[in-house]
Every structure is written in C-alpha cells, then in structure tokens.
Design a protein around this nucleic acid. Structure first.
Lengths: 348, 348
DNA sequence: CTGAAAGCGCTAACAA
DNA sequence: TTGTTAGCGCTTTCAG
C-alpha cells in the first residue's frame, strides 16, 4: 500500500526494517534491544548498533507492552492539581518512580468523581502496572476491581473497604496539636471550617478529632462553629459573617481552625476583604503547610504534613509490589507524623 | 498453560472470550465496541451487551492502538509542576482535550533538560498522537524530530528553529505596562530580577523589553540592576543586598521588576526576612499572576497572563491538527495579551 | 550464537 | 448482517 501524500504520520521504522538492513533476524534485534548480548557476536552487535543509530530507530512501546504484558508505567490520580498539596505529592511520587525505572502517567480528577472514574478506566485500559490514587472516595467499587489485576496504593485518604497499601498522615494528632496550640494561646472558642466530609477519611477524622479536643479541653462549643463549606468566596464570606456576628458572650469564636490549605487560603482572603485583622480580631490555624504560607500577612500557623515524603512512600510501596518476590504481603497503612509550625496567625 | 498460583496479574478477559460466550466472531464484537451496530441484529447486539457486562470486559487499549496506529492520547510536558503557572495551563489543556475525547498524559520536566528529554522519548515511544510542551529550550533537535511524526504545540516558549504552532503571551507589551506603571508612580531607578535567560524566549524578550523601556523613558540604568539569579533564598538575598546597598544617589533602585512569579515570590519572601517594607523601602512588580498574589502583604501588583486560556488554545490548535482535513496549514504563533493588575506593592 | 514461527488483543478488508 | 483472514510491531520458545 502506498503512503498517502498528506498523511500526518510518516511510516515509522520498525524492527523488521532494522533487521533487514542489518542482515539479521528480528529476534536478534530484539535480543539486542533487551540487552541480551552476552553471547552475541561482537560484529553483529556493532552492526545492529549502527543501523539503529542510522535509522533513528525506537521500539514501539505499545507492541512491546502488548507482548510482554507489562508497561512499566504507573498511573497517579490526584484530587486537585491546583492544590500545592497535590503537586508536592506528585513530585514525591515522580522522583521515586523515576529512580526505579518506571514511567508515570499523571491525572487530575479535579475532585470530581466522574472525572476520576474516567481516568481510572483510561489508565486500566492502557494496562498500567500500578495505580496511586488520592481518591474522591466515590469510586471504591472500581478501585477495588482494578486492584484485582493491578496493585493500588491509596494516598492521603483511606478506604477501609479496599485491602490496599495506604499512606496517610496522623490527622488526629495534627488536630490535637492545632487545638492545643490555640488553647495555650488563650483561645477557648474555636470554630472549625472544613470541606464536606462525607466519603473523605481525613476530613472526617479531623472533625472528630476537633470535637474530641474541644471536649477534653472543656472548651465552649456551638454547633454553628463547625462549618462545612466549599471554598468559594461567597460561601466562605457568608459563613464567616455568620459566626462572627454571633455576639461576644460565648457566641463569637476567637479562633478558626481550617481543615485544609484550600480552606485556609479562602478564609484568610475573605477575612482580609472583610477588613478583619488576624489574629487581633480572629486567629487562624490551618491544616497543611505550603511554600508561601509564610508570605501571607500575618504568616499563618499550620500543622504541616510531610507531603513529598508521603509521595515517595506511596511510590516505594507500589514498586515493592511490582517487583516483589511472591507471595504478596498483607496491605499496610503507613501513617506519617504531622508537625506544628508556629507563625503569627494565632497571636502570642 | 496453567495460571501461576502467585502471579500478580490474573488473566484478563479478551475479545475472543467475549466472542465465544456470545457465540459470534471477534469481528462482530469489535464492531459492537466501535459503535458500528447500525446493521447489527438487535438480538446479537443485546447478547453481546450482556456478555460484556457479565464478564466485565474492557478492551485492551494497547492492542487497539497498535492496530489503529492512534492512541487518542496527547502528552503534555510542563516546566515545573510546583509553579502555579504550570498547573493553570494544565487545567486549560485538560479541559479542552477531554471535551474533544482525547486522553492526557502529564509530565513534569522540572526545568531539567535531561528529564525533559526522557519524557519526550517516553511519550513518543508510547505513540502519543500529539505533544504540548513548555520546553526548557535544550531539546530542540528531539522536538523537531518528534514533530516529523506527531503534531507538536509549543506553549509559553518559542523555538524559531522548529516550525510548529506556538502559544505565547506578548511579553514586550507586558513589560511595557509594568515599567510604565512604575514610572507613573514616580520610580526612575528600576531593577529587574530574572532567571537565566539563555534558551528561554520569554525571559530574553522580557529583558530586552525592560532595556527598551528603560531607554525610552530615559530612566537611570546600571548594569548591576539587571540581575540574573536562581530562586534560592541565599542567591536572592545576596543579590538583593548588593543592589540595595548601592547608596542612595542614583545607585539604589527604588523598584524591582520580577520577570516571573517564582522570582516574585522569592524576592518578596527575602525582602520580608530582611525587614524591608514594600513599597516604602522598595517597590515590587511581578510578571505573571497567581491565585493568592493578593494575600501577600502588601498585595503584589502584577502583569497577568491568561494562563488557563493559553492552555485551552494550545490544546485547540493541537486538536485541529489531529482531526484536520488535509493538507495541514502553516504553523501559527498565537500571542495573548497580558494585563496589568494594580495592587499595592508599587506604592500609591 | 542466531533464526523461524507463533502469538499478544485487537481491527479491517474482503467475502459471504 | 456476520465471519474469515491477515496483520499491527514486538517478544519468546524452540530449533539448529
């Protein structure tokens, strides 16, 4: 068949062509490509090397993977790529994977279960060797199914129904540190802002830990102080105005604990727009640190998670499964330690 | 052959199995999968649908792509995923691609030419249909070669040697806006901080535009004010201290123009550490906006680029090539308009 | 040390 | 309306 004059893709060179030009069989080329030249004629080897260079030949990974049933590729799906939390994790995953010779396909679920679902199936269809996912928590069935063929590692968010390696942070301890810190600075009326916490384990854990800490410290508490919200400015503004209008005697909180960095940013932004001073009018403490948290005025006090290391660990766990001598070990859950970073947003 | 007891991957179900169970040929299944059931027996269709559901069958994308010579996947390589500039672009690319039915493989070159090189070949080996790249500028040969088989779109950074669609921002105009603004606020001694600008077109353009603007306004100028640096705190600190120690009469600049957001963040951070007030001690204006630039104290004035739209556009151009009626059009370079966003870091 | 041949899972003429 | 057949580009026994 003749090559179409306008066709976008010129005929790429195949192993057969290399074989012909080098005057050997495809098998020999294949062996060469796979480093099996222990017992290969030095002359043949040399010739093949030359022909390959000359033709600029690169093996087709699709064909190879189809035959070998391995792609040496792992997929990673993060919840929201605009969140520094996700990008740091990605860097952690990437470095470890690369060092081990695996490729990475990155996907951004955008906190949308449907999008996540699409990406999971796309990756599975592409026959990835493994999956690392910071899941929305709404596709557990699919993830479990993928996990039957392909090792999966969960990051940040746990899903007890699925038996897989999981990397998280000790949210309870982090919240404890946060509340202890605020209390030590004299706060006794502490509100908490969180994204909706159904389906998402760390969010739920943080809310529960907040409630526990409030109880143990014998702090004041009102249902209205536990606010579930999205990060839109209008929403945050409304909720903030509501709790801050509660009136001073035991009604208005003096501090706000934000359950993740997105919330923290929004809260700080809105507070600023409302002309409220931090921490004079109200203190702020966030869960999760990020590069420029100290650039905000005032620099915001946070509970930091070792995000990069969490990415490393997730990749390491996955690689272990991918290269494991059998039989496979029981799934483990690794919990990292959070760390309080004192800056200026809580007073002192 | 018997399935190995410990083998990680259970035998996945293939089209042949579906065919057998449904009592039809593989071709029929294939037709079904590809939506060619116009002239298919309603009964067969029904049966196939059932068997597929029953077996949880998913076609192997590797096999399909090998045969079709299309992966419906485009690769995107960004310079630095920790940079909000990159992530916004990614979102733009992603949305457009998804809407057009293409998959996206994301890679982070980390501003490292070697890493970039690896990713480009990896993507090419995986037979991507197209590539969008914010290149380091050090792999032009490779990119040109890929471009012979596969449409490439350059984003943010131009490479004149390669004939491809390119999406950029009008750096010259942006810089002009920046300098004009500072001048209008009374600054006549303006320094510029930039990352090393060899290989990277927008950086070079910005430096040239800065020099041109300085000349046209008849501003004071000293070689030392044009500083090339990395974003490490130590480097920035040293350079900053140097120019600020120059002495007041025409030596010490009153304003600093930062050529990109990474530089801006570092400069602001170091200024803060040095106890210098912005804009009282020195004004700051940055190229490129980002979500939380207004959270900094003072909120920093910037020249914003429509990053999300640039991502959209890059993807759109690529899709056009991928779905084009032939013959292909000549490569175009699209230039987006920057926009000055006045905040507080330049005085007034 | 190297080659022949079969086959990975799918699609696409061409027949029927 | 459906089946047969021949590959896509590579790897991998099995022979020699």
């Amino acid at each position: 068949m003749v090559q179409d004059a306008y066709s976008a893709k010129p005929m790429p060179v195949t192993i057969a062509e290399v074989a012909r030009k080098a005057g050997v069989s495809k098998s020999t080329i294949s062996r060469y490509l796979n480093g099996l030249y222990d017992h290969m004629g030095a002359d043949t080897r040399e010739r093949i090397s030359q022909v390959i260079a000359e033709l600029d030949y690169r093996p087709n990974a699709l064909a190879r993977s189809l035959k070998q049933k391995r792609t040496y590729t792992v997929g990673a799906i993060v919840a929201n790529i605009l969140n520094p939390f996700s990008t740091s994790i990605i860097r952690g995953i990437e470095d470890t994977l690369k060092a081990a010779g695996f490729n990475l396909i990155l996907c951004n679920a955008d906190d949308d279960p449907a999008k996540e679902r699409d990406y999971i199936t796309m990756l599975a269809d592409k026959q990835i060797d493994g999956l690392i996912i910071n899941t929305t928590g709404c596709n557990n069935d699919l993830i479990a199914q993928v996990n039957r063929n392909t090792p999966v590692v969960l990051i940040d968010r746990k899903v007890p129904e699925i038996q897989v390696d999981t990397v998280t942070v000790d949210s309870a301890k982090g919240v404890r540190q946060a509340i202890d810190h605020m209390v030590s600075l004299g706060h006794r009326r502490i509100a908490m802002f969180t994204l909706p916490y159904d389906h998402v384990s760390p969010r739920l854990e943080r809310v529960q830990a907040y409630q526990a800490a409030v109880a143990e410290h014998g702090l004041d508490f009102r249902e209205e102080w536990l606010v579930q919200t999205d990060i839109e400015e209008v929403s945050i503004t409304a909720k903030l105005q509501h709790i801050l209008a509660l009136g001073d005697k035991a009604g208005k909180p003096t501090g706000i604990f934000c359950a993740n960095n997105l919330i923290t940013m929004s809260v700080v932004k809105v507070l600023k727009k409302l002309g409220l001073a931090v921490p004079a009018d109200v203190a702020v403490l966030g869960f999760d640190d990020w590069e420029w948290a100290e650039l905000i005025e005032p620099p915001v006090t946070v509970v930091a998670q070792p995000v990069y290391e969490m990415g490393n660990k997730a990749a390491t766990l996955l690689i272990k499964r991918l290269t494991a001598g059998r039989p496979p070990k029981k799934p483990a859950t690794i919990m990292f330690e959070p760390e309080l970073i004192r800056r200026k947003s809580c007073g002192e």
